[in-house]
Design a protein around this nucleic acid. Structure first.
Lengths: 137, 137
DNA sequence: GATAACGCCTATAGTTACTATAGGGTCAAG
DNA sequence: CTTGACCCTATAGTAACTATAGGCGTTATC
């Protein structure tokens, strides 16, 4: 199949596929006489794998590792497990820090009583840490 | 003060300060005869404002708007309020999606019973949506 | 006065995961 | 035979910096 068909089948984009090829995530497929890429069903499976990993939050670097692991079916799956664990840990850190940000902003917003810029408590709070009403500042 | 002193005082980095100048977030300060930047206390306050906004999750584009607002002290502070609101909304969306990711990964991980790559349930789940145990897939 | 260590300067490229654009060739239908 | 949809490459842009190279300025010590 051609690249456009592949893109639709994997819910991806043509440019993204070429990008993955450049990064070495997808193998360069054979070309037609006029130079157009010709993909197989296997290529489609691989692209779906990549997209699905991305959907789950893996980075392309991590996907590259997962692809390599898949190629050695006799190996132990502990590395896959570890990758998942580290990703979960990363996400949890992220959740914490975004939650903290949100709380800080809500505190800041609570200081606003709708006046002029000159006495805007939010801007004052944003000016420096020691004038910020956030508990975290 | 020179750029290094400014950086330390605002808990920033020298390169970051020059970067902010290039973006127009900080004004280009006067230079010494040999071409070195000379900053005032006002510059320090402004840099602290920027850094503190960043700490609260505002983008540099948003910081630029906030700086402009600060310069018109007679204006109403409603735009500041709106900026905070939209940032809070953005963060809430982000929290939801990261939480979802985390749940998906935990589900995936729960399928692993420590075997070989060949029958790794995680890799199978990652291969395609229709083989994924995630409720979201 | 020489030298070393540090600070400052500019300009460019790298990071992540794409997206957008320019400028051109290919293919199938009417 | 031409129109429109598709394909190609190469380059630049996104966010917010960080890193690097290569070269001056400044200051302290010997």
């Amino acid at each position: 199949m051609k690249i456009g068909t592949l893109a639709k089948a994997a819910d991806s984009k043509v440019v993204t596929i070429r990008y993955y090829e450049k990064l070495g995530l997808l193998e360069a497929p054979p070309r037609s006489l006029s130079g157009q890429r010709e993909y197989s069903a296997e290529d489609l499976e691989r692209l779906k794998f990549i997209r699905h990993c991305r959907y789950h939050g893996f980075s392309l670097a991590e996907v590259k590792i997962l692809i390599k692991l898949r190629k050695a079916p006799e190996g132990n799956c502990a590395p896959v497990d570890n990758l998942i664990d580290s990703l979960i840990a990363k996400l949890e850190t992220q959740i914490d820090s975004v939650n903290r940000l949100r709380q800080n902003l809500i505190t800041l917003k609570g200081c606003c009583h709708g006046g002029s810029i000159a006495d805007c408590a939010i801007l004052k709070g944003l000016s420096q840490r020691d004038s910020c009403p956030c508990s975290a500042c």
